[in-house]
Design a protein around this nucleic acid. Structure first.
Length: 342
DNA sequence: CACACGTGGGT
DNA sequence: TACCCAAGTGT
């Protein structure tokens, strides 16, 4: 592949930023382009962690509740683990919430409550990987970091027609992106590229006719934009089965806390067995199907007596179960049970 | 490098 | 219905 035209490289950021100045999405954690407001690293970091593998629409409500309840990193660091986990319930990938707390406490304990302002300093924090360190460095601190998320991967793979399958293509994508990052407005540049990927350079049916950088997009010229980037084939999801126990006493339900490692780690849950049972045949039993990333689970509810409420746990008023912060799997099961009881 | 790790919305 | 996908990180 020949090197792209020097003039095209020099022109990329100005074109993209001019489009962003006009078309930027208005998001709760975002400082509008041109605003004189200084970004709050805490809010940028919080939003970036919430947005990992999670849609803007899903994050908005959580971001509002977290920043209302814990306005600063010191407030979050001082929070109870159970409160933070419950507030995260439903957002998924719960290791993020455990790392979020660990990160907030590290910032307070080791950095005087001030986020590191360098990519390397950020990268050393719990739950902050290559993407988040670069994004916070660029957006909160104006560092010319090379920010690469799935949107940017897709846009650059198309623009430069990088036909290597992911994840091997990441090296070439990063190399192609690095010289495009402007010293001026690197944070807006990263967000502009993400907006482009989210609204124009979409996975399916990209709107190339509205793209501000289509003029020198190699995949557009070749007519192959929609096919890029190439992805590895996905594998079949196993079907798994398990049982959860409904242990009720005096209008309260026995809840436990799942171990920090593994599925739904650290979250409140109904007690039960491992998810490795043969398919249940209890006719008429309350059960739910729930699709996880790498397996599908059918979870069946079984009534048990109070003698099974052993070990660590809490009696939770059934009328207040919504406040328990159950992950979606258990919330679906509980909702179905309460419905069938009526 | 490959895999574990959630969930909800779009098609 | 089924599959795809989303501002990834840790191991």
């Amino acid at each position: 592949m020949p090197d792209p035209d020097i003039a095209a490289v020099a022109d990329f950021a100005p074109r993209l930023l001019a489009w962003y100045d006009r078309a930027a999405r208005n998001l709760p954690w975002r400082i509008a382009p041109g605003s004189a407001v200084t970004p709050d690293p805490y809010r940028i970091w919080l939003a970036e962690v919430m947005l990992q593998q999670t849609t803007v629409a899903a994050v908005a409500g959580y971001f509002a509740r977290f920043t209302e309840r814990w306005p600063s990193v010191a407030d979050l660091a001082a929070a109870d683990d159970a409160d933070v986990m419950a507030a995260w319930a439903g957002l998924g990938y719960y290791a993020r919430a455990r790392n979020l707390l660990a990160c907030a406490r590290t910032v307070v304990a080791d950095h005087g409550g001030v986020f590191p302002d360098s990519e390397a300093g950020l990268r050393a924090l719990p739950g902050v990987g290559d993407y988040t360190a670069a994004a916070v460095a660029a957006i909160a601190f104006g560092r010319p970091a090379v920010v690469v998320d799935a949107n940017i991967e897709r846009a650059i793979a198309r623009h430069r027609l990088i036909a290597t399958p992911l994840p091997a293509a990441k090296r070439a994508i990063r190399a192609a992106l690095a010289p495009l990052v402007p010293r001026d407005r690197p944070g807006d540049f990263a967000q502009a590229l993400m907006d482009l990927g989210a609204t124009i350079c979409t996975p399916r049916s990209p709107a190339c006719t509205r793209c501000p950088v289509a003029a020198d997009c190699a995949a557009f010229a070749a007519g192959t934009a929609e096919s890029l980037p190439l992805k590895p084939p996905k594998k079949a999801k196993p079907q798994r089965h398990g049982r959860a126990w409904w242990i009720e006493s005096d209008a309260r339900l026995w809840l436990v806390r799942r171990p920090d490692n593994g599925m739904l780690g650290g979250m409140r849950a109904l007690p039960g067995g491992a998810w490795d049972e043969p398919p249940a045949s209890d006719d008429g039993a309350v059960s739910v199907r729930h699709g996880f990333t790498h397996f599908d689970l059918t979870l069946t509810l079984v009534r048990r007596g109070v003698e099974d409420a052993a070990g660590e746990g809490e009696w939770w008023p059934i009328s207040a179960l919504d406040a328990a912060g159950l992950p979606t799997l258990y919330r679906k099961l509980v909702d179905k049970m309460r419905e069938s009881d009526r």
